[in-house]
Nucleic acid binder design. Sequence first.
DNA 1: ATGTTTGTGGTAAAGGTTTTCCATCAAAGT
DNA 2: ACTTTGATGGAAAACCTTTACCACAAACAT
Lengths: 335, 335
Amino acid sequence: MATIRDVARKANVSIATVSRVVNNNPHKVNQATRKKVLEAIRGFDYRPNALAKGLLMKKTMTIGIIIPDISNPYYAEIVRGVQDMADQYGYAILLLNTDRNQDRIIRHIYFLREKSADGIIFSGGIIHGEKVLSSLKELIERVVVIGRHKVDFPAVIIDNVGGAMKATQHLIELNHKRIGFIGGPDKSTTAKERVSGYKNALIQRGYPMNSELTRKGDLTARSGYLLAKELIQKEKPTAIFAANDLMAFGAISAAKESGLRVPEDLAVVGFDNILFSSYYVPPLTTVEIPMYHVGAAAMEMLVNLIAKKNAEKLRWFDTRLLVRDSTAKRKLGKE
Amino acid sequence: MATIRDVARKANVSIATVSRVVNNNPHKVNQATRKKVLEAIRGFDYRPNALAKGLLMKKTMTIGIIIPDISNPYYAEIVRGVQDMADQYGYAILLLNTDRNQDRIIRHIYFLREKSADGIIFSGGIIHGEKVLSSLKELIERVVVIGRHKVDFPAVIIDNVGGAMKATQHLIELNHKRIGFIGGPDKSTTAKERVSGYKNALIQRGYPMNSELTRKGDLTARSGYLLAKELIQKEKPTAIFAANDLMAFGAISAAKESGLRVPEDLAVVGFDNILFSSYYVPPLTTVEIPMYHVGAAAMEMLVNLIAKKNAEKLRWFDTRLLVRDSTAKRKLGKE
DNA sequence: ATGTTTGTGGTAAAGGTTTTCCATCAAAGT
DNA sequence: ACTTTGATGGAAAACCTTTACCACAAACAT
């Protein structure tokens, strides 16, 4: 790898001059000299070493993003949003998976500190406990979280409670009496908020809160399938609200297997509107959240946070109920 | 951020000694001294700065992974495999999306060079042209690709041709005469290989090669839906082989909307076996490729490449046809 | 004629680490 | 008593960059 020294030697100037040319430093450099330097740079295909630069400037243009699992489309979409925004600002992204394991979170944080990351975006799992907080150290002023956490970081919040209420109300309006809920683990704030919305809506409409209609899973299609199967056999709901689309897929799959028609015998609502939920059969009624934009917003906030300007503390995203065939058959098959 | 100097001062030793303790250097250090140092380290919660270390050692324990799009579950699964393996070896992952744009690939490569990445994993798109090759420079010896490329890098290869043949043969054995194919862009080697497999199988069985039964799309569910819709209306195939599961979902969705039953009126086969394809309705017949393991294998090869040992040049992954309900109705609904 | 600004370029420090090479001392060997 | 060896610790170089500071000449102002 060619260094600034090689370039300087070839162009017959000092390294300071090369640096000035590379960084468009206001310090003047003669046209002729600049040209020589530029040629030398081209000749070596020289790029300044980011490690050295980062070490000196205490800025690496790298941020970490810590999520439970990239193979979950929900997070993948968020990451894509973060990514694109990061790209625009010239930031690199260090991706870290936790599988919701608190120890791994801490390990990842230390890792990011070693690498002198400029900031962190968190999503999924809950940040709690002294240990996480203290591991953050100097990074603590440069954290943006997605979703609610015990700790008061700048955050991008999604109206999960409201969304879940809309979904549940929709089922209520369709006259369903026995509305089941299949949700996620307590580790997930998102999952917890969605149960709350479900319960709120039921209470508001004076439904009995028989909690035997709710189940907890792990937000995978498989888990949705298993839970729905059980629910269908035992509690025989007429509708199921799933905490995310993946689980809703599993639920519909279970319904079909049990000989139930969707939506006639069992209505199903999901949450997230992941990319292909409109191509499910039947197309899935679900609550849309703009995950891509959530990710992009988080990154934007982090950039501002790092630049210490415009210290926005909260960005709120609304949800939207998308009624498709899994709850109410439309007359004509058009989208 | 505490530095090695702070620790040294607090423990009343030189930085050399601290370094020795931190890195378990064979150079002996007295038990008592070691203890003092360890305490100082704990006190500051000291971690060696990876930038400084990387600069000196010319090793950053960071690799880049360049893919078309992380929000595509196919790539997300690969990345997850890479990630977990990287984690085991202590590597960090820099994630870069290209959207199959050649210029972005080059930009990303330069970026990784600036950051002194230890290696690169490529997947999707084709690496071609002098420009990419020359941009690689010193990294060129530390590249692993997933899938076939014009250039001869160490690679993890998936038997796409064979898989596509199995899928097509399966449809042939089910006595389908008009078997359509909906595929991906020419930019994607994977997509091209899958058409080849499809054509090979047809030719082998003496089918006429009427290419009006094939369509090219962009590997999204939406594209699958559009293409299938068109195919259904014009060419009326009895079976469709989609180049990936996402497109297959779109195709089934289109079939249902056109009043066709799957598999009775239209059989559909996908490719990839993404996580929830078994929870589709009907469960999707598809060709399984172990994406997670492909990713893990790629990372393993890269680690060895970097360590210059065991210079494995090729890792081959077989595919497996999973027959589910989208092509042949089973008697009993068990999985 | 002297002092001041402007244009241009170089020198050297600093950032945090690892490791080579020395230095010292005590114990062991001759 | 003298040399060798082993244990232990420190000083300093190197990795590559940016920038504050200095130097020098030419042009300008007084």
